[in-house]
Structure formats: structure tokens, C-alpha cells
């Protein structure tokens, strides 16, 4: 037991671990906050589509040796893609769905082509599955500032975001513009996706956005509790994931997703049992 505690203490004493904990916690929280609205609006796949666009943008940035500003380059590209996907989803459900698949695969293909051609020896796996322990200092500062900004904006416009999520027609009729708040959600999602990509990778970041909300929806009655509980679940899954990953030598991103999946399973069983009682 004392061995374990001292191992834990030494783990937390590493600066790169502290950095990973700070950045990861903030990104997990902001992803969970946005997740509730995205899931309820049936926009879950937008996060996934955006992460692939992000991969393409990051790959291009790295190949042209502007890796230092890679995130800064990817962010505007993904924000533009977010607006585009939102527009498509609003116009027609089926077309929006197909368009996401189209844009994801194209971005992925272009990204990999550029990487391959320029022969950079960047590990593709790192882009696909991320690594929370290798975040650079400048990325960390960038992530902390933006994640806090996402959370503040969400809290500031919480009621309006809720109203627009629940009923666009009513909101618009009383002067709360769905276009404005949907646009805001799209931009914030783009930011979270870009920040989360370093940590979770292209393939796993959307899990961080949708899983905690889906879990809390299994047993929460109010919107407020869904949002707060999913933030809690997300944080817990991140902390457990990063510890397990370290001590059992698993990849961190994948471990966080698997723990989120287990939480979801537990939530499902809990709500099934409760409905039987």
C-alpha cells in the first residue's frame, strides 16, 4: 500500500504529468459541457467530422515544417469546417450526414497524402490516438486559455444555449437567435476538437465529447444535472484513465475512452434496474 502511494506521489511529481493533468482536466470538462447540447441536437457526428478535418490541417502544417504553430493553423480551418457542417446539417438531415462522411474521409486522405509525400517521419499513430504526456509547453498554454474561454462562454450563455437546444422556433420567436447560438456551439466545438486532438487523437476525441453526456442522460432528470454530472464523469474518467494508463502501461487516450464506455455501461444497467423497481 505504501509502495503504491509513494509510486503515486512520484508520478504526480513529474512536471510533464502535472502539465498533462491540468490540460487534460480542462479539455475533458469543456468537452463534456458542449457534449450535452451536441447530443441532444443530434450533432454528435459533427465532432467526429471536425477531428478528421483537424487531422488534415495538422498533417499539412507539420509537413510544411510549421509544426510550432500547427494548432494555430488547424484552429481556423476547423472553425470554418464547423460552420460548413452546421449549415449542411440544418438544411437536410440525410445530406448533412453524408456530407460529414465525405468531408472526414477527404480531409483524412489529403492529410495522409501530404505526410507521405513529404516523407516526414512523424508517427501517424500519434495523430490518430494522441498522447497527453507529450504536449508541448506552448500547446499547453494555448489549451488552458482556450479551454477556460470555452467554459466561461458556455456558462455565460447557459440559459440561451439550453433554450435553443430545446426549441429553436420558440427561442427565435422571443428573440434568442438560434443561428447565433448554434454558430457559437459550432465554434466552441471546433476549439475543443482541435485542443483535444493532441490528447486523444483524431479517432478518439469525439468520444470525449459525447460519452459523458450520454452516460448522465441515462439517469439525470434535469438539463442542469445532465451538464454538471457529465462534467464530473468526464473528469473522473480522465483521471482514472491517466492513472491506469501509467501504471499498466496502456495508451492514455484509449484507456480514457474505455473507462467512459464502462461508465456508460454502468449507467445503462443502473437505469434498467431503477426502472424495474
Amino acid at each position: 500500500m505504501t509502495d503504491f502511494l509513494s509510486a503515486l506521489a512520484s508520478f504526480f511529481s513529474y512536471p510533464f504529468v502535472q502539465k498533462a493533468l491540468l490540460v487534460g482536466s480542462l479539455i475533458s470538462l469543456s468537452a463534456a459541457l458542449l457534449g450535452t447540447t451536441l447530443v441532444l441536437k443530434r450533432y454528435s457526428m459533427i465532432g467526429d467530422g471536425l477531428s478528421h478535418v483537424g487531422f488534415g490541417a495538422l498533417a499539412i502544417a507539420t509537413s510544411f515544417h510549421i509544426a510550432d504553430v500547427a494548432v494555430g493553423f488547424a484552429l481556423p480551418v476547423v472553425v470554418i469546417a464547423a460552420f460548413f457542417l452546421l449549415r449542411l446539417s440544418e438544411n437536410s438531415k440525410i445530406h448533412g450526414d453524408a456530407a460529414i462522411a465525405l468531408i472526414s474521409t477527404t480531409s483524412l486522405a489529403i492529410g495522409y497524402m501530404v505526410m507521405h509525400k513529404n516523407g516526414t517521419n512523424v508517427d501517424v499513430g500519434n495523430y490518430m490516438f494522441g498522447n497527453v504526456f507529450t504536449i508541448t509547453d506552448s500547446d499547453a498554454v494555448f489549451s488552458v486559455v482556450l479551454a477556460i474561454a470555452v467554459m466561461l462562454l458556455f456558462l455565460l450563455f447557459y440559459h440561451k444555449i439550453f433554450s435553443v437546444t430545446f426549441d429553436e422556433s420558440f427561442s427565435k420567436a422571443i428573440g434568442v437567435s438560434p443561428a447565433l447560438y448554434n454558430g457559437m456551439i459550432a465554434v466552441l466545438t471546433a476549439v475543443v476538437v482541435v485542443l483535444g486532438m493532441r490528447m486523444m487523437g483524431t479517432l478518439l476525441i469525439s468520444a470525449l465529447i459525447i460519452f459523458p453526456s450520454l452516460t448522465s442522460m441515462r439517469f439525470c432528470k434535469s438539463f442542469f444535472s445532465v451538464v454538471t454530472v457529465s462534467a464530473g464523469i468526464s473528469l473522473l474518467a480522465f483521471l482514472l484513465g491517466i492513472l491506469l494508463a501509467h501504471f499498466l502501461d496502456f495508451p492514455a487516450g484509449s484507456t480514457i475512452v474505455v473507462i467512459n464506455a464502462l461508465f456508460y455501461l454502468a449507467g445503462m444497467i443502473f437505469s434498467k434496474i431503477r426502472s424495474r423497481l
Binding site: L40, H159, V226
Partner: peptide
């Protein structure tokens, strides 16, 4: 979307004040 929306009655009613 509203059919299975997780929100309490009070939460929904109060959004009327957002005008």
C-alpha cells in the same frame, strides 16, 4: 427532439423569460 429531452418542467418554463 423534445420527446426525450432531459430537462425539468421548471427549467423549460423559465426559458420564457429569456426575451
Amino acid at each position: 427532439v423534445q420527446r426525450d429531452f432531459p430537462a425539468t418542467v421548471t427549467e423549460i418554463v423559465c426559458t420564457g423569460f429569456l426575451n
